[in-house]
């Protein structure tokens, strides 16, 4: 589904991703871990098409298509979803309005009929119930004044409604209380299917207890320095990133070493 080869990206001439290789097949869940500032969010945003980051090398194929020339909204319509680490507030635009516009754009792209207001509300109310979210949030401005946890749940609600093929969740577990974490995990698991793939960016094993990954990768200094199965996450939890230092040093370019 997703083939990343030697992906390099920089911001203001400063390299951040230094050659990422990653292959994700339909049905798989990959966890990406790694220290702060290692480039996890950058990778997620580059995949979603954010132009703040200049892609300086490598390729990204999604469903066999080179997506690097595609605009962010085209990628989204093709089924790539990013749950933001920091969901953005949009004053004046109600949550329900954004969601409806998003869904109808994506449905139109898939050749499906637009949902009318009644059908849409029925769908969204059902999904909100799953996420145990207060319906008031629908009519408030997008993320404005939402608590940290409400914002994260809102991201998963959007994902549940938009039903992407490739979901990239950037630290969706951060800032959630224990109950919320379970609800969010349930929401994620509900979407797991042989047709879908997920990339979970996380710092904590506790999400991975609920959403068990097929692969775990460690990103350091803009490179994947270690890949393994779900036990790698447990090992990291026990030993921290320190024991990977050697690998990290290997990943570091010569001028920084």
């Amino acid at each position: 589904m997703l083939e990343i080869r030697n992906l390099q990206a920089s911001v203001d001439g400063k390299p951040i991703l230094r050659g990422i290789d990653l292959s994700v097949k339909a049905g798989e869940v990959h966890a990406i871990m790694g220290p702060n500032g290692s480039g996890k969010s950058t990778l997620a945003q580059v995949l979603a098409g954010r132009d703040t980051f200049a892609v300086t090398g490598g390729t990204v194929f999604y469903q066999g298509v080179d997506i690097l020339p595609m605009a962010p909204e085209e990628r989204a319509r093709e089924g790539i979803f990013l749950a933001f680490q920091y969901p953005v507030e949009i004053p004046g635009v109600s949550n329900v309005y954004l969601l409806k516009a998003a869904l109808n754009n994506i449905r139109q792209h898939r050749g499906q009929a637009e949902l009318d207001a009644m059908e849409f509300l029925a769908l969204i109310k059902q999904k909100m119930k799953q996420m145990e979210m207060n319906e008031d949030l629908l009519y408030r401005a997008v993320n404005e004044g939402f608590s940290g946890g409400e914002k994260k749940r809102n991201e998963i609600l959007q994902m549940a409604v938009l039903e992407p093929k490739l979901a990239i969740l950037d630290e969706t577990d951060s800032g959630l209380d224990i109950d919320a974490l379970q609800i969010v995990a349930k929401g994620i698991n509900a979407l797991r299917s042989p047709q879908r793939a997920m990339i979970l960016v996380t710092h904590y094993q506790r999400l991975l207890d609920y959403v068990v990954p097929d692969f775990v990768h460690v990103l350091a200094q803009g490179k994947i320095v270690r890949s393994g199965g779900k036990e790698l996450a447990l090992e990291l939890e026990e030993r921290g990133y320190g024991w990977l230092e050697g690998a990290e040093a290997a990943a570091r370019p010569a001028e920084n070493a």
């Binding site: 989204a76 319509r77 979803f81 949009i90």
Partner: peptide, 11 residues
């Protein structure tokens, strides 16, 4: 804000 909307499929 614009990127957030774009990521949701909105031009």
């Amino acid at each position: 804000q614009l990127f957030y909307c774009q990521q949701r499929g909105i031009s």
